[in-house]
Design a protein around this nucleic acid. Structure first.
Lengths: 210, 210
DNA sequence: ATGATTTCTGCACGATCGGTCAACATTTTT
DNA sequence: AAAAATGTTGACCGATCGTGCAGAAATCAT
């Protein structure tokens, strides 16, 4: 009992390292192209050890996808009826762009999964994502009814926010190539945030000029 | 000579069918997951015949990616200095969303390629896409200097247009799932177009209310 | 200390992969 | 009609895949 903590800590450290490696390898090679041996090499352990902790490639993949899904869901906590729309949506965009920078591999794994018609996590979409989305749409439409923002399509606003923010993760390589081959600097990330918010929030705000 | 036309027509028909099948299979399974035999099955011909016309999987893939790249490039023909900015950008968004609907597989292949850091078509990015993008940025910045649109970031406006329009292709499955599991109707596609243009173009227009 | 449990690892398997090749069929040229 | 060129196909090869499994190594409980 006294040493159980050490054992658990070790287990958790190894599984965490596997998950980090898997997120990256799944993102860079796709589900089919990501071999267990490559994930193991990325984590610095033998292939058999990966299987020991996650049984199958599919179960490991589901864990990876579930992680980014939970993180994204938490990023929209600010979207509630009582919050100021511009502030709340701005925070959401900010957080989502921060995640695009800090967790780009997770975003890419999700994108790959959706592009391929969610062969493995379709239940996530139908259960959690659907109800989650409907809840946010209700909030945005309430904002509109209360005259706080322009009467736009709440659904397509959400899609636009997802698309633009995740673009900076999924298409990082294209953006880098168009940036003379060098990654965006801190300053450029701030500029990106400002530009995205400026563009999208102006489509939301009631008053023409801020 | 007289019958060369028939021979060529056959060759062209078979290669066209292979390209169509390949675009779909590459999109739905990723580069690694797309096997030549699956492409062949999709095209209704033996595997060897695919290899006969395209030699390697990589060469076939490059042809598929090159096609969608050329189509997208032509879609931005309206972005010139002499055109009206709102009209030109609106046309560009319209065309891009039409392509999202009619050529979703091509968009998905491109997304997959960029997500995986363009291991096969990096030369496209550095040569053609870079200069093409810089040219469009020059046009948009000229519009700004002439006071025709708000002083926004031309680069990030382009990224936003790419992100939102391609989202409707790459994330079709997610959008469908969030649409009670049924594909968007004609009416809903029109609504999508209107919503995207309303949102993005308002961020571009000089006057607050249209 | 010793037995039980957990963790770790190398090996072997059937399946599938991209690509080669020779044989065959068809079409084109002479 | 014969020869040449082009198109088509199934069989085959070495490599890699996911996964099962037995046993070694380490850690735990008593």
């Amino acid at each position: 009992m006294a040493t159980e903590g050490i054992q658990s800590r070790n287990r958790q450290e190894v599984t965490a390292r596997i998950l980090t490696a898997a997120e990256r390898v799944f993102a860079e090679f796709g589900y089919a192209g990501a071999s267990i041996s490559r994930i193991a090499a990325q984590a610095g352990i033998p292939k058999s050890n990966v299987v020991y902790y996650f049984e199958t490639k599919e179960l490991l993949y589901r864990r990876v996808v579930g992680e980014i899904f939970d993180i994204w869901r938490a990023a929209a906590d600010s979207i509630t009826i009582d919050n100021d729309p511009i502030q709340a949506l701005g925070d959401y965009i900010d957080t989502k762009l921060d995640l695009a920078r800090t967790r780009p591999y997770g975003s890419k794994v999700w994108a790959n999964e959706i592009i391929q018609r969610a062969p493995i996590v379709q239940d996530y979409l139908e259960d959690e994502l659907r109800s989650w989305t409907e809840d946010r749409i209700v909030v945005i439409e309430a904002w509109i009814e209360h005259g706080k923002i322009r009467p736009i399509s709440a659904r397509h606003l959400l899609y636009a926010i997802w698309a633009t923010t995740q673009h900076y993760a999924d298409f990082t390589h294209q953006i880098t190539t168009l940036n003379e081959g060098v990654e965006l600097t801190n300053r450029q990330w701030v500029e990106s945030k400002t530009a995205v918010k400026d563009l999208l929030l102006r489509g939301v705000e009631k008053h023409g000029d801020a």
